[in-house]
Design a protein around this nucleic acid. Structure first.
Lengths: 191, 191, 191, 191
DNA sequence: CATGAATGAGGATTCATTCAT
DNA sequence: TATGAATGAATCCTCATTCAT
C-alpha cells in the first residue's frame, strides 16, 4: 500500500468515528506518524483528503453492498439476503457502534458541500437501483407479487437499513438493526 | 420570550443546519446580536447550550410526533397517518433539506457524548413505543392482522422515516421520503 | 459584621489561598452569595478590595505579632517567645500550608504596585522595630549580650520567620518552621 | 541558542518579574516576536512552558548556589562565604528588586500545583543539604563548635537568605539582605 | 519525497467593569 | 441598597495551511 493510500485508510477510520469536520489534520498525522509537510505533499488540503476518503469508502462498500451480493450470479432472493447479512455482520463486528460511514457523511455533509453530497448520492442511488433490479428479478421468478413497486420498495429497504443503523448507533445496541432487517425479510418474502 | 429562550431558539436553527460541533459560539452571537460575555451569562458552556438545544428540539417534536398525533383521541389508523403527514409537511416546508434535527444529532453525537445520546434515545424510544401502541390498537380494532409484531413494526416504521429523511437530505429532494411514507402506509394498511 | 466586612473577610481567605491576581471577582461573589452589583456598590474596583484586604490582614496580624506579644507588659524574653509561639500555632492550625498572608502579598505585589508595597512595608517595619525593642530590653535586663546589634538581629529574626514559612509552604511540612524557630531561640538566648 | 531555549529564557525573565500566573502567553509572544502557533509548536501549553522555566531557573541557580560554591574544593568557610557573596551580588546587580526566582515561585505555586512544588522543593533541599555538609566540614576543621546542629543551622541559613530576599523585595532596598547576611556570617563564625 | 518551523485567524472561555431597573 | 443583564477585551489553545530546507 502506498503512503497515500495508508493516509487515506487511517483517515477513513478516524472520520468514521469523529466525522469529517471534527477530525483535524493533526488527528491524522498523529495516527499515521507522518509530518505536516508530507501530508500536504500528498493532499492539496483537508478537503482534498475528505473527498479521497469518500471515494475510498464508496470503493470499499461497493463490493459487499452491490457487486459481490446484489450483482452476483445468485438467485435474487439470496442476493438481497446476502447484502443484508453483510450489513448485520459489518455492524456486529464493530466494537463501537460508529454507524454507516456513508450515512454519517450523508448527514454531515450533504447540506454544506455539493461535491461530497453528489458522490454520496451517486453511490446510494446505485445501491437502490441494484436492490430495485434484484426485486424485479424476484418478480420475474415469481418470488414476489408482481404488483410490488420495485423502485419504491428498494427505497424503503435502503431507508430501513440506514434508519435502522441510525437507531442502532443511538441505542448502542445492534438488536434494533437486526429487528429491522427481520422486518425487511418478512415483508419482501426473503426468509 | 426570554433572552435565554431566544438564544436557544436561534442556536437550534443554526445547529440544525451546521451540526453541533461545527457551530461556533460566534455563529450564535452574530445571529443573536449579543456579546460573548452575555452568552456566558446564560450558559455555562457551549456544551450546556447544546444540551438545552436538544431538550428544546425534543420539546418541539414531542407534540407533533407523539402527543398530538399518536396519543390523540383519534382512531389508530388516523393517528399514525397524521404523524406521517406531519413528517412530510415538516420537511416539505423546509427550503433547505436540513433533515431531522434529532436524527442529525443522533448521528453526530451518539458515539462521543453519553448525555446527548441518552436524551435522544429517550425521545426516540418514546416515539417508537407510541407507534407500537397505535399499531396494537389497530390490531384490536381489526385494522391490522393480529400476527404482526407491533414492536418490530414500530421500529421498522421509525427506521423508514429516519432513513427516508437521510436519503431525502442527501438527494435534496423530498420525493424519496414521500415514497417511503407511501410504502409504510401500504404495508401497514394505512391508506 | 457589616456586609462590606463580610466580603473583605471572605476575600481575605481566598486571596490568602490563591493570591490577589489569580483571585477573580467571581471567586469572591460565589463564596459570598452576593451579586455583581452589590460588590461594586461596596468597592470601586477589585484593586480597591485588594487594598482593603491588605489592611484587614494587617489589622488581624498586628495584635498577635506586635501589640499582644512584643508590646505587652511581659518580660522581653517572654514577649518574643510568645510572638514565636503564635507563629507556630497559626501555621500548625492551618490544614493547607498557605503561608503568611503578608509575606505572600509582599512577594506577589511589591514589584508591581506601590500602594500594596508600602502598606506591607509599613507593617513589616513596625514588626521588626518591635522585635528590635524587645531585644534591647533583653540587653537592658542582662538577658542578652550587650554587643548584639539589635536592629540587625531583629531583621534576622523576621527573615528567619518569613523564610521559614516560605520553606514550610514549599515543603508542606511545618517541621522546618519549628526548627528555624528553635534556632532563633537558641541564638538569642530565649529558651 | 535554539528558538525553544530563547523562548524559555525570555519567559524566565518575564515570569521572574510578574509571576507565572499573571504572565500571559501574549506577554511572551510580544517579547519574543513569535506567533501564537509557533509557541504551541514548541510547548504543549503554558503549563508546559512553566515547568521548563522552573527547570531552567534551577539549572541556572545550581552552579552559583551549590556546585561552584558549596561543593567546590575550597575550605568550608570560604565555600559558604562565596555562596553568600553570590546572593548579594545577584540581587545587587538587579535594577528592579524582583526577588529570588525560586522563592517567588515557591510562594506562588506550592499550594496549587504539585509538580511545580516538588521541583522547587527538590532544589531547595539540595541547597540546604549542601549548606549542611559545609557546616559539618567546618566542625571537622574546628572552625565551628561541634555541638552545632548542622541540619537545623542549614535550614536557618536558607531561611534567613530567603526571608532576607523577601524583605528586600518589599523594601526595594538591598540593605536589609546585606544585614541579614552579616548576621549569618557572625553567627556561624564566617567573618 | 520529507521535515518541521512559522503563520495568523478563529476556537471556547473568563474577566473586570458598567448599566438599566 | 440590590439585582443581574450586558460589554468587550483578554485568556489559553487549535486549526489549516505555507514555507524554507
Amino acid at each position: 500500500m502506498s503512503k497515500k493510500q495508508e493516509i487515506i485508510s487511517i483517515a477513513t477510520e478516524i472520520i468514521h468515528s469523529k466525522g469529517y469536520q471534527p477530525t483535524s489534520i493533526s488527528d491524522i498525522l498523529d495516527a499515521s506518524n507522518i509530518g505536516k509537510g508530507q501530508f500536504y505533499h500528498y493532499f492539496a488540503s483537508k478537503y482534498d483528503l475528505g473527498l479521497a476518503v469518500v471515494e475510498y469508502i464508496i470503493q470499499n462498500m461497493t463490493n459487499p453492498l452491490i457487486t459481490n451480493t446484489l450483482q452476483s450470479k445468485d438467485d435474487p432472493k439470496s442476493k438481497i439476503n446476502k447484502m443484508l447479512d453483510w450489513v448485520i455482520a459489518y455492524h456486529s463486528g464493530m466494537q463501537e457502534k460508529l454507524g454507516c460511514p456513508i450515512g454519517n457523511l450523508a448527514i454531515e455533509m450533504s447540506e454544506h458541500d455539493e461535491t461530497f453530497r453528489s458522490k454520496i448520492q451517486h453511490f446510494l442511488t446505485r445501491w437502490i437501483e441494484a436492490i430495485d433490479n434484484s426485486l424485479a428479478e424476484m418478480i420475474e421468478q415469481n418470488q414476489l407479487n408482481s404488483n410490488v413497486d420495485t423502485r419504491k420498495s428498494a427505497e424503503a429497504i435502503a431507508s430501513m437499513v440506514q434508519g435502522g443503523i441510525l437507531l442502532m448507533k443511538n441505542q448502542k445496541d445492534i438488536q434494533i438493526l437486526k429487528n429491522v432487517v427481520d422486518m425487511i425479510r418478512l415483508q419482501f418474502n426473503l426468509s
